[in-house]
Write a protein that binds this DNA or RNA. Structure first.
Length: 686
RNA sequence: GGCGAGGUAGCUCAGAUGGUUAGAGCGCAGGAUUCAUAACCCUGAGGUCAGGGGUUCAACUCCCCUCCUCGCUACCA
């Protein structure tokens, strides 16, 4: 459908998770793109609902609350307010910002669940989960700690070992302990409701891979294809959890269970819309149920599966709802070459940015749009920030507006001079006035915001070139009429620039409107050269941007380097001592000096080397997960330490008869343990 | 290894359905200019489009293979 045929738009931005402050990655990923899109639509006088809200359920929040000794509600209250403020300060113009702990959301989400339940859409399955008898509750994966079966790390979580990175299931853990009471949890039956996604495969394949093959981004289609066409197909997903923080499952016999966050979070968009409509006294339903509504979800790439697979499946099953017309997911933004991380504090926090750069919201908006991770992961660097500020915003955009206004004050006391006869160069400039808004609009409609922004800058360049070509500071001496025409046109270019820049740089556009004494303009006015009428008073020039000095960015880089240093020290504490053992325990281990006779990469494996070693007692085969640290030739002929009485274990079809011992350095790299000098193969170690 | 996304000038990136000398911005060099936050404007240098095969009259664009980066996933006794 042609975008212009839609009657109204519902635009959503991913609900930010209320367990930490917002950083530049959030902004670049979905809030700035969605805000640009919506501001543009409003400027076009289209009917838009732009909704968002805090995502306040889930295990991570309960863990954070427990750690800080406060209630989950207190955690989400804190971050909800903080995020809401950051959004407001950066001009993210939600029509409504709600939260998933709101009553209306609990009702909406429960309603959805009940509807699907009544339709018999859920598979009820009873599985065994760990239960903490002392605390009297089931334990989320993250609440169980134990020894990692793969690397022996003693504080692995039930879902993942942070040391070796392997993903685990709670029952894999050796010696599991509840993080709530410290007691050993027991396995207990629990019933959950699963959404059988496999049933939607055909519908989803058609809808996404066929119907939207041409208009969705390749990264989004690729991710969907990877889910839809994976060997095992879509797996049923549990839509409920054993927990007390969240929305109670509205079904008999579901006491102590809540809806899975990912079931309730997207429904939050609907709740937020309802809340907004109620406040406005209008009907929310057309925004979600009318075929003429264009629904667009702005998200980061980590959310693709939920917004393209699970949520549409839910909406489709419920029936009566429109499906997203597009899900323009962005990739990730890195910071100075490293992945942004809340837990490692490797981020530029919005509230800290505002303290360090007051009044420079638009600069960050500009940089994050110009370098947005639209097609691939991108890197934010302070050097790039400075460069874009100084040589683009200051030198091109700000400078052009300043020149036009200063000249007007210098030659015409701040009054817009009259338009006289037009030369070719004037006509070209006026033609550009018409073309740019169209080009910019076309790019925005296609979600190509960085391209759209570059056209905005080209428009400003056109203004600079126009002044350079017409040289009004020269013509004022012998041809004041000519100068008047030139400045009239230059000022009107600047006024038009404000209109097209507004979605990207709203604070700047506001300053420009104020300077020109304009208000109430929108996209429909763009392209006109009579926005500033002859004789109108222009306010004195006010600089729109100022230079960012070397010291300023150096300070930010230093701050990050400090963080990095602290992270390195914090992340790599020397592993604490394990529990005391007896000599007999130790004596059970049979460690020997052995010689590596042969080594070869294990076919079809990235991490394994297949070693053949002389243990003195015979030759054995050992598979060792060191292929990423050593080449076969690094090992061949070396004497190393091996645990030879470890029970053999079949890996990838081959028996591995023992374990080569290595030292692991702070950074995770491995070192061989070599005898000080040549030693007989099979020598014992004690 | 499987799946997905990328690998285009020093840097950041554009390049529907294959077709004249591969583009932009920044950076760099030179020039011009002085209204402007020494900014603007003009010109130029810079790329065997990751590498190798193939299809074609013609490939950055299609096919195959290899290498590298990122994400998800499997193997680390």
């Amino acid at each position: 459908m042609n975008p212009k045929n839609f009657k109204r738009y519902t635009v959503t931005a991913a609900l930010p998770y209320a367990n930490g402050p917002l950083h530049i990655g959030h902004l670049a990923g979905c809030y700035i793109p969605s805000d640009i899109y919506v501001r543009y639509l409003r400027s076009r006088e289209r009917d838009v609902a732009y909704v968002c809200g805090s995502d306040e359920h889930g295990v991570a929040i309960t863990i954070k609350a427990r750690k800080e000794g406060i209630s989950p509600q207190e955690v989400v209250d804190r971050y909800h307010e903080m995020m809401k403020r950051s959004f407001a300060e950066f001009g993210i113009s939600f029509d409504h910002y709600s939260r998933t702990s709101a009553k209306i959301h609990h009702e909406t989400a429960s309603g959805f669940f009940e509807d699907l339940y009544q339709k018999g859409e859920f598979l009820e399955q009873t599985t065994q989960q760990y239960y903490d008898e002392e605390a009297g509750q089931f334990l989320a994966d993250r609440y169980i700690e134990g020894t990692c079966p793969k690397c022996g790390h003693e504080h692995a979580y039930g879902d993942q070992c942070e040391k070796c990175g392997s993903s685990l299931s709670p029952t894999d853990l050796i010696n599991p302990k509840s993080k709530l009471s410290g007691s050993t949890p027991v396995l207990k039956d629990t019933k959950h409701w699963f959404l059988d996604l496999a049933r939607y495969t055909d519908f989803l394949k058609n809808w996404i891979l066929v119907d939207h093959e041409k208009d969705w981004k390749t990264n989004v289609l690729g991710q969907c294809r990877s889910w839809l066409e994976a060997g095992e197909g879509l797996q049923a997903r549990s839509m409920t959890r054993d927990m007390d923080w969240g929305i109670p499952v509205p079904v008999e016999g579901a006491e102590g269970k809540v809806l899975y966050v990912w079931f309730d979070a997207p429904i939050g968009y609907i709740s937020s819309t309802k809340e907004w409509a109620a406040e406005k006294g209008i009907d929310w339903e057309p925004y979600w149920k009318d075929e003429g509504t264009k629904l667009v979800h702005f998200i980061g790439k980590d959310n693709i599966v939920f917004h393209c697979i699970i949520f549409p499946a839910i909406l489709k099953t419920h029936g009566g709802y429109v499906l997203p017309d597009n899900v323009p997911a962005n990739e990730f933004l890195n910071l100075e070459g490293d992945k942004i991380s809340t837990s490692r504090s490797w981020a530029v926090w919005l509230h800290e940015y505002l303290e360090a750069f007051p009044g420079k919201q638009d600069v960050l908006r500009y940089v994050l749009t110009a370098n947005a991770p639209e097609t691939k992961d991108n890197d934010f660097t302070w050097k790039d920030y400075q460069l874009r500020n100084n040589s683009e915003l200051v030198a091109i955009f700000g400078n052009f507006v300043n020149r036009a206004v200063v000249l007007t004050h210098k030659f015409y006391n701040g009054l817009v001079p009259a338009l006289g006869d037009l030369s070719d160069i004037d006509r070209d400039a006026l033609a550009a006035l018409l073309e740019f808004p169209e080009k910019i609009a076309a790019s925005i409609e296609r979600y190509r915001f960085r391209e759209a922004l570059s056209y905005v800058m080209d428009f400003a360049r056109t203004g600079n070139k126009y002044l350079a070509d017409t040289e009004p500071w020269k013509s004022i001496k012998d041809n004041p009429e000519r100068t008047a025409t030139v400045l009239n046109i230059a000022l009107n270019i600047a006024a038009n620039l404000a209109i097209v820049a507004e979605p990207f740089l709203p604070h700047t556009a506001a300053k420009m409107y104020k300077m020109f004494g304009l208000s109430g303009l929108n996209w429909g006015d763009a392209g006109k050269h009579g926005l500033l009428k002859t004789g109108k008073t222009i306010q004195p020039a006010e600089l729109l941007f100022d230079k960012v000095e070397d010291e300023t960015v150096a300070a930010q880089v230093n701050k990050l380097m400090e963080t990095k240093k602290q992270n390195e020290m914090a992340v790599a504490p020397v592993t604490p001592m394990k529990d005391i053992i007896t000599y007999d325990d130790f004596a059970k281990l049979d460690m020997r000096v052995v010689k590596v006779l042969a080594a070869e990469p294990m076919p079809k494996s990235k991490k394994l080397l297949k070693l053949s070693v002389d243990t003195g007692l015979g030759t054995r085969t050992v598979l060792s997960g060191v292929a990423e640290h050593f080449k076969p030739e690094d090992l061949i002929g070396k004497q190393v330490v091996m645990l030879i009485n470890l029970a053999p274990r079949k890996i990838m079809g081959i028996d591995s008869e023992g374990m080569i011992l290595m030292a692991e350095d702070k950074d995770g790299s491995l070192r061989l343990l070599l005898p000080g000098s040549e030693t007989a193969n099979g020598s014992t170690i004690s």
